[in-house]
Amino acid sequence: MSQNLQRLTSFLSGLAGHGETRSRQALAERVSEALPTVAMAGHIANEWLCHHLAGLDEAVLLDIGPGTGRQGVDLLRRLGARADRPRHLTIIAVEPDAVSLRTARHNLLEAAQAYGLDVHVMAFHSLVEELDPSFWPLVAAMPGTLLVHSAFALHHVRGKAAGEEARDGVLRRLRMLEPKALVLTEPSLDVSTSDPELRFRQGWRYFGLTFQLMDRLSLPQEDRDAIRRFLVRELEAVIDDSDDSRSKRFEHVRGWWRRLARAGFSRDDVPSTLDLGTHPQMQPRRYPGYVGLDVGEETLVAVLCATPAARDAHSL
């Protein structure tokens, strides 16, 4: 890393840590409430999940990286208000933070009771790429129609395993489960290059647009400070050119679709009835296979929905 970037990283570290006593998980959840690119992404993802869950008798939702279950609770709230909700829903939560996982299980079961839903929660404390091999046949054998959801989690999957990129391996495993649909929410930012200077320029533009969005919002100062600290930490992780877990390798939405296609998925049409919501400072837009949360002409966060592509008869 150049000396200039080293100085900038040190400066950003100071900004991110100054006066902050909350955990990263607590900070991220505060941001998810205040920043519309995150809050609206959860709304759209849950609406898309409800669309695919409608009319099912027995359903299974594999939720990768649910955190404390905040978005899952909102999903159960939406299902509770629908006459076409599943009769029974099993939620399989895969989360690497043990405290968050316990909290998620408690919150989901409490919400199920509050909204009159028959819900069973299975909790697995693990990174998705490090799940025990027995996990996958267990999920495949579950009775009911399977859906998969992941919000801001798969970009954490790093490295290679068995000769392929770990991200591709995870998506391939998911495709082998034959889910009805996979709903994926990720930032749309390509920082896959090994050049830290280029990563910085791309990250600076992306987070600059996010800061501009924040500046146009009427937010309490506490929320502004939380968002600023969180975004500074994210930018610092983008600049980081090390191979440890702190560095980030976000991908553009086009990159995610390339990976999904390699794994055997195709794009799901955005339903015309899908409620995207509205926001005065940000435009949710329909694209082939995804909804972009756009500032100006740039998608900052994408909510994608993929379905299993028809298998080539020669590959069977």
Rank of each mutant, 00 (worst) to 15 (best):
P280E: 14
G14W: 03
L219I: 10
W204K: 11
F250K: 04
Q202G: 12
A263K: 01
I239A: 11
E236R: 14
R249V: 09
A263S: 12
G203W: 05
K160N: 15
P284K: 06
P86G: 07
E234A: 14
G116A: 07
V232N: 03
D223R: 08
A313H: 06
F230I: 01
L235G: 01
L198E: 14
A16E: 12
E298V: 11
G144A: 04
R199N: 09
A162H: 14
R267V: 09
D168C: 04
G255Y: 06
D294F: 02
H106W: 07
L108V: 07
C50L: 02
Y115M: 11
A45G: 13
G264P: 12
S242Y: 04
V253K: 03
L76H: 04
A161E: 09
R229M: 10
A39W: 06
S194D: 15
I239Q: 08
L260I: 03
G163N: 03
A302Y: 00
R24K: 12
V148A: 00
P36G: 08
E234K: 15
H155C: 14
L49P: 02
R70D: 07
A141D: 14
D118I: 08
E186P: 05
R199D: 02
D84C: 03
A45E: 11
R175N: 00
T185L: 08
L35M: 15
M176W: 01
R78H: 13
Q212A: 14
R259N: 09
L231S: 01
L89H: 03
H106P: 00
S126L: 11
T307Y: 01
R228Q: 09
H156L: 15
S150C: 06
S100T: 01
S245L: 15
F250E: 01
H43A: 04
E197G: 05
A261Q: 14
E164K: 12
A140G: 15
I227C: 10
M214I: 05
I64S: 04
T299G: 05
W204Q: 14
G80Y: 08
L198T: 13
R24W: 03
V38C: 10
E297T: 12
